[in-house]
Design a protein around this nucleic acid. Structure first.
Ligand SMILES: [Mn+2]
Ligand SMILES: [Mn+2]
Ligand SMILES: [Zn+2]
Ligand SMILES: [Zn+2]
Lengths: 150, 150
DNA sequence: TTATAATTGAGAATGAGTCTCAATTACAAT
DNA sequence: ATTGTAATTGAGACTCATTCTCAATTATAA
């Protein structure tokens, strides 16, 4: 007999505090987001959920994604021309991204030096920073090679 | 008799190279973007242009914005839920942003240390970085005070 | 002047995301 | 278990930024 996963606890507690309910639709959506490893978009998630036979409408997917952001289990990575990209933040330490223009792949990285430097910069400006996003665009190793061959 | 502003030269040269024409619509749009100091959105620009009596359709505004991005006179700052934000990049050195969650104001800043650190990080990952965006969200001085008073 | 190709604008189309609302469901109190 | 109340759901309508279509216009070169 297994324990209730901790993300479920977090989410249902979050909902309860607000007088909201932990329904099976929300549960299905939570599970899919937590099982995903990389970045994802709402529509993709919706399709996966349908395929898996679980029932949840597109509207519920969007509504639940908002809730999951509010309670900190997932977060927005960026907005693109085709939609918003999210990723699990629960059990996934803060990091920034290098994004390949060639193939769309993303490298996740973390630098303590970078984080501290940002704090300094905020201090210098009298700004109280709470979150940040750094996105470096360019070419991954593979795409650099491809470019040379051409 | 004044010289043709350099941005016009840049843009018309860019267009000519591609067999495209420097029309009065494009010229009007270029002028408005170059006269703007801060961040702007296409719709705002369109409205300003109309008010100024110049004629250019929304379609042309969007089309010209793309061209101006391609030739490097302006660039995308970020995408929000209500649309895309641009800024002039011609004569406006590279910088990053601190964005106030309270009032929406933006602080522009530049740090050489930060730029160099990013280069290091790319090197470490074998990534060939070309551009980046760093956005720090939080509270500006004014909004920090407001918060305390509450 | 003419042929050719680029451009324009009005409005239709697209598509992500939100909203509406009647029907369903969860929950708590009896 | 029954009932009352409030939250939730899903289908599809709607919004709104952006792109597309296409006939009419305009620039350019021959
Ligand atoms: Mn990530
Ligand atoms: Mn700026
Ligand atoms: Zn790549
Ligand atoms: Zn502020």
């Amino acid at each position: 007999m297994r324990e209730k996963p901790i993300q479920k606890q977090v989410f249902s507690r979050f909902l309860k505090e607000r007088g909201q309910r932990f329904t099976k639709e929300r549960s299905a959506i939570l599970e899919k987001t937590m099982s995903r490893n990389g970045h994802f978009e709402p529509e993709t998630l919706y399709i996966e959920i349908r395929k898996a036979g679980a029932k949840a409408s597109r509207a519920s997917v969007y509504r639940t994604i908002s809730l999951l952001c509010e309670c900190g289990l997932i977060e927005q990575v960026r907005k693109t021309e085709h939609g918003t990209v999210y990723e699990r933040s629960f059990g996934h330490e803060h990091h920034d991204h290098m994004l390949c223009i060639g193939c769309g792949s993303a490298i996740e990285f973390y630098s303590d030096k970078l984080e501290r430097l940002q704090e300094d910069l905020c201090r210098q400006q009298g700004f109280q920073g709470t979150t940040h996003t750094l996105e470096i665009r360019g070419y991954c190793r593979k795409c650099q090679k491809k470019k040379k061959q051409t």
